[in-house]
Computed example of a mutant assay.
Amino acid sequence: MKPQSMTGFARSDGYWQRYRWTWELRAVNGKGLDVRLRLPQGSDHLETDVRKRLAERLARGNVQVALSITLAESRLELVVNEAALQAVLDLKARLGDVLDDKPLSLEGLLGLRGIADFREGEEDSAALETRDGMILGDLDVALDRLCAMRGEEGEKIVAVLGRQIDRIAELTGTIEADPSRTPAAIAERLSEQVGRLVDAAPSLDSDRLYAEAVLLATKADLQEEIDRLNAHVAAARALLEKGGPCGRRLDFLAQEFNRETNTICSKSNAVAVTAAGLELKTVIDQFREQIQNLE
Rank of each mutant, 00 (worst) to 15 (best):
A200D: 10
S43H: 09
A177E: 11
A235F: 13
S203K: 15
S74T: 15
L294P: 10
Q4M: 07
R181F: 07
W21A: 02
D227E: 10
V98W: 15
Q17H: 08
N262S: 06
D207C: 04
E152P: 11
L67R: 04
R167C: 08
E77S: 09
V158A: 10
N62E: 14
E107L: 03
R196F: 10
W23N: 05
A72N: 03
L197A: 04
I165P: 05
K31G: 03
D13Q: 14
E24R: 10
L280Q: 06
D251I: 00
F252C: 14
F252P: 06
R288K: 15
I69W: 15
A275P: 05
G32N: 07
T274N: 12
T7N: 11
V50M: 04
E56V: 07
L240P: 06
L128D: 02
A200I: 15
L239A: 14
A116D: 12
D221R: 04
A276T: 00
G108C: 13
G195D: 06
I157Y: 03
Q223M: 11
L112D: 12
A169G: 05
A187R: 09
L136W: 02
R18I: 04
V63G: 08
A126Y: 06
R26V: 03
A231Y: 08
L89Q: 09
G151R: 15
E260K: 03
E129N: 09
L95D: 03
V198T: 13
E120C: 03
L106V: 00
A159N: 13
V65L: 08
V98I: 00
L278K: 09
R145A: 15
C147G: 11
T48Y: 07
V271F: 14
G121M: 02
I186G: 07
R189N: 01
P179D: 07
F118T: 01
K92Y: 05
R57V: 08
I175G: 03
G61V: 05
R288Y: 08
I186R: 10
R94H: 13
L229E: 07
A126Q: 14
C246G: 08
L215D: 11
R119I: 01
R60V: 02
I291A: 04
L161A: 05
L239T: 00
K219S: 05
V283S: 01
P3Y: 03
D221A: 11
V88F: 09
L95E: 12
E224W: 03
R228K: 04
E120P: 08
W21S: 01
L197C: 08
A83P: 00
E192A: 15
E176V: 03
I264C: 12
D207Q: 09
P3S: 07
A254H: 05
L71R: 06
K156S: 05
L209S: 09
K281I: 11
I168C: 02
V160D: 10
R51E: 00
V194F: 01
K242G: 01
W21N: 00
R237I: 02
L171W: 00
Y15G: 11
V198K: 05
G30S: 04
E260Q: 11
H45I: 04
L250N: 01
G173C: 12
K219M: 02
